[in-house]
Write a protein that binds this DNA or RNA. Structure first.
Lengths: 150, 150
DNA sequence: CCCCATTATGATATAATATTTCATCATCGG
DNA sequence: CCGATGATGAAATATTATATCATAATGGGG
């Protein structure tokens, strides 16, 4: 019995592997496994939470194991890092270059990713007015989500 | 002989004390000292860099000493935390509630604060479309500054 | 097919960042 | 003066991240 969520994850993993291949990068078993953990988590996961899970099936896993995998996944734009939480979530639009914009609920801890093209372009223009060439933009908005406001 | 920069810092410290007082908070000697270190630094400082400097004049300083001071200063909106660097800088507009928007040069390490009202309001609207009530927004744009682009 | 350059992983140690906890001390309003 | 609150001291520990060196897999040229 494979759950719907699990099937969805598998599809995402297949797609991720394709996208890596297109960039000449390989989504190895290990990296694929870590990405799977993040996809299945349903919320932000810290590096050491991921490491604990990884250890269940991957005996000798150590901090560098997980950080190297995360570096790769971030490089491939499959995963975002939420700086405010020291945590990691899947990209909503895997593999695409897009500004990371997060809503972080301080009550329930839920993190959701949004995409405001208006904000992204305003930021880009503001940066370029200073002569600054932006490469990677992170927006993290902490507050209270709709569910917790009731 | 008091340098111009030093005089400017003093003025900022006086103003900071006033603003704290207005909120019923006290800028104690210790906190004032830490704020002074950040103002004089001329760039982002990590907690432990600040701690090292603090120790020169403040014998028993320990990690909680500096983190408590930083928490206070952030609470009073006198200092920003740059999540991507685990580092701290003074607010450009001390004591005001404003979204923190930073340009971080990955070549020279310089951090500058910008203020794009357009981006801030686009983000606020995007958040509220999701029913999210924003409380604190951080934008960190990593890239290459004008000076380093030449 | 083999070589070897490159990339990936294993393994250990350690560095850097941050918090918990409990005790003590100041301050200030009643 | 007293008690409540807020601030600091001090020690231990938790959490996050990197450095380093060794070993193994992989994948193009010859």
């Amino acid at each position: 019995m494979i759950s719907r969520a699990r099937r969805r994850t598998n599809a995402q993993l297949v797609r991720a592997a394709e996208m890596c291949a297109q960039h000449g990068a390989q989504l190895t078993e290990l990296r694929r496994h870590v990405l799977g953990l993040i996809l299945e988590a349903g919320g932000p996961m810290t590096a050491y939470q991921l490491l604990d899970r990884l250890k269940r099936t991957h005996k000798g896993a150590a901090p560098p194991t997980i950080y190297r995998a995360l570096d790769f996944l971030i490089e491939q734009r499959l995963v975002h890092r939420i700086e405010r939480l020291n945590a990691f979530v899947p990209c909503v639009e895997a593999g695409h270059l897009h500004p990371a914009q997060f809503l972080i609920c301080s009550q329930c801890g839920v993190v959701s990713e949004i995409e405001s093209r208006a904000a992204a372009s305003a930021l880009e223009h503001a940066a370029e007015r200073e002569g600054f060439r932006p490469r990677s933009t992170v927006v993290e908005i902490e507050g209270v989500c709709a569910a917790c406001r009731t």
